[in-house]
Design a protein around this nucleic acid. Structure first.
Lengths: 378, 378
DNA sequence: GTGAAAGCGCTAACAC
DNA sequence: GTGTTAGCGCTTTCAC
């Protein structure tokens, strides 16, 4: 019955002159709306035109069909289309105190690792019906603070953050106030919080053991010396542990900590000159790795014949370098996905744990830069 | 006077018991606020505590100091700090019909070129006091449409977009309704709109002329065959123009159009086998370039001895490849900056032109992959 | 100088 | 089934 009705009403608009007039009116109204546009169409306009109250329109908008006659519902839906009505999310958010927006604060947009994290976050937001606000702290704690406050002003439902780890009071306040947020990639000391990280110790474990298995005896590790950040420290710790577990002593540690603002290639060359017996490099950062390759080349040494290289962060180009680079692959996309799911759970009120840590596993991808067929040092 | 007063009131809180009591009270209130927090502090709370009306607080918040006594102003500012008040941007936006948010729609988060564009946009937003919403169309026109509608629901003040170029009606509607938006990187045919692009013709001109100058005689060009996108077409056109200008004929064109879902390396190898005389490749995409290098290697040919290579898009790793890659550098960061400035101008109502096109210039970075010291083909 | 009141566009009790 | 009403937190006339 209802079906028949629909079809009929759709298929015979040309029957009476009245019908045609109405339809002409529609077109005119539509044109006017399109022309002006600045005069945005609101829920009231829809209600008026459909001859119902705002309440009823609101119900339909939110999928609450139970309380409304099919006929009314269809009419409203029709009007919504005709007017090309788009509900104002600001008004909705103001009323309901929730925006379905989450914010992400990254500290580096350039690194492809973060691109993949962002991709994971974006995909998952889309899947779960959230929108995403993004900003870049650029490792500046002031910017970070500013952005967190901005997000709160904007009533974002939750925040994913790769923290500078230099706004401790603020992080604590967020936790205390139960503001949904998830920390990714880094750990914040002494803070009980939701966290998604990659096992850095394990990454180092894979890298250094692999080098040892390939017969390397004097392995060095290089890292950017950011005192607040946990990641590289854990990787260096892992390096130490493997050495100790393999019977080396503390005096055998060869650790190069690089000031992020220095000339990485120069520093690396100096280090290699001072430690001419080094036969392998474990680089905890892909930018360091590129510079190291240059440094080694300029010293007229060969990879892997003289020095083997294992680098953090798999990238699209690693296998195209000369030689192809052995890397530790971190599941960046996954990290983004997991963090977003966790955040949304926490927003929804499922998952009321204060803290929960997801630890993802890195993976070793072996290529020529670390294999020793032609290793020719004593 | 005022200065002295301030100092005194700050330096003698321990004088009377009354003073101490008051300060204790403050601490309690603050703690309660922090403890509950969900009970967000609003402009009314500030007004009440400061003993003024919402109007006055609002004036102060918006920097309108002219109408208010210094004393009152200071008191309000003080209360704002004490309560750690954060104005609700939703309410403000609802009232003022502008959010200071712009949206960006990208079609690919992975490519480092887009990372740099994003960085430029983000930096400029921050500088100009805007927040940024981001999403990824992934070249899917449906997603793109959805996101544009989402942005409009959320009342973003304007949109920066790298369009799929497959929602023509929608783009036209946006223009017609004077919605501020700026198209980047690609051109939309037959649409009068604000646009920031890089000169693709010029990029090809630089690349192909360079290869010719290095003595290459049978240059091929490779591109992803996305029928809707203008960029690669312009690059291929540029390629043709150089050939013709150098006395070649149409029959000398060697053009490989690659289906984006195919195995790029295989396709390239097949192409090179079919055209064994090709002595140079101009690749219009950095992902194609990496695959081409592999293809060439697998055919036991040498770069640049047998085949020279010039690739679109400078990246951090180009100079570390073997051989170091000659590239066309596009000013991605600049494009982001310019597009954002243009958009914000357009939002502010300066710049009422319907259309305005900024054309940025690419740059040739010469490295070993294209130089012919050892070019040994006939 | 300051405040009362209306209203931005929406939702959600609570009537009927 | 549907509508009335009272806000959400802010800005902005217009009075005083």
């Amino acid at each position: 019955m209802a079906l028949t009705l629909k079809v009929v009403s759709k298929s015979v608009p040309e029957i009476g002159s009245l019908e045609i007039k109405e339809s002409a009116l529609f077109n005119n109204e539509e044109k006017m709306v399109n022309e002006l546009k600045k005069a945005k169409v609101t829920i009231s306009d829809v209600a008026k035109k459909a001859g119902v109250s705002k309440t009823t329109v609101s119900r339909i908008l939110n999928g609450d069909y139970a309380h409304t006659k099919e006929e009314t519902r269809d009419r409203i839906l029709q009007v919504i289309k005709e007017l090309d009505y788009r509900p104002n999310a600001l008004a909705k958010g103001l009323k309901s105190m929730s925006t379905n927006v989450i914010g992400i604060i990254l500290s580096n947009l350039k690194n492809p690792y973060w691109s993949s994290v962002l991709e994971g976050v974006e995909d998952t937001c889309h899947k779960l019906g959230y929108s995403l606000m993004i900003c870049n702290s650029d490792e500046d704690p002031n910017k970070e603070k500013h952005y967190i406050e901005e997000f709160q002003r904007r009533q974002v439902d939750g925040i994913v953050i790769n923290p500078t780890v230099r706004n401790m009071e603020m992080y604590e306040e967020l936790v205390k106030s139960k503001y949904p947020f998830v920390v990714v990639n880094r750990k914040i000391p002494n803070l009980v919080v939701k966290n998604v990280v990659v096992d850095n110790n394990q990454g180092a474990f894979l890298a250094v053991n692999h080098l040892m298995d390939e017969g390397r005896k004097r392995i060095a590790v290089t890292a950017f010396n950011n005192p607040h950040v946990s990641t590289w420290k854990e990787r260096v710790e892992g390096y130490k542990e493997v050495l100790l577990s393999r019977g080396y002593a503390k005096k055998d540690f060869r650790i190069l900590l690089i000031d992020p603002v220095s000339d990485v290639k120069e520093v690396t060359m100096a280090f290699l000159r001072k430690n001419p017996d080094v036969d392998a490099l474990f680089s905890t950062n892909n930018m360091i790795s590129l510079q190291s390759m240059e440094a080694i080349r300029e010293l007229h040494l060969k990879i892997p014949e003289d020095i083997a290289l294992v680098s953090y962060d798999e990238t699209a180009w690693a296998k195209h370098l000369e030689p192809p680079l052995t890397t530790i692959k971190q599941p960046g996309y996954d990290m983004g996905v997991k963090a977003t799911q966790m955040l949304v759970d926490s927003i929804a009120g499922n998952n009321d744990e204060e803290s929960e840590t997801i630890i993802l596993e890195p993976e070793l991808i072996v290529r020529n830069s670390s294999i020793s067929e032609s290793y020719h040092r004593p």
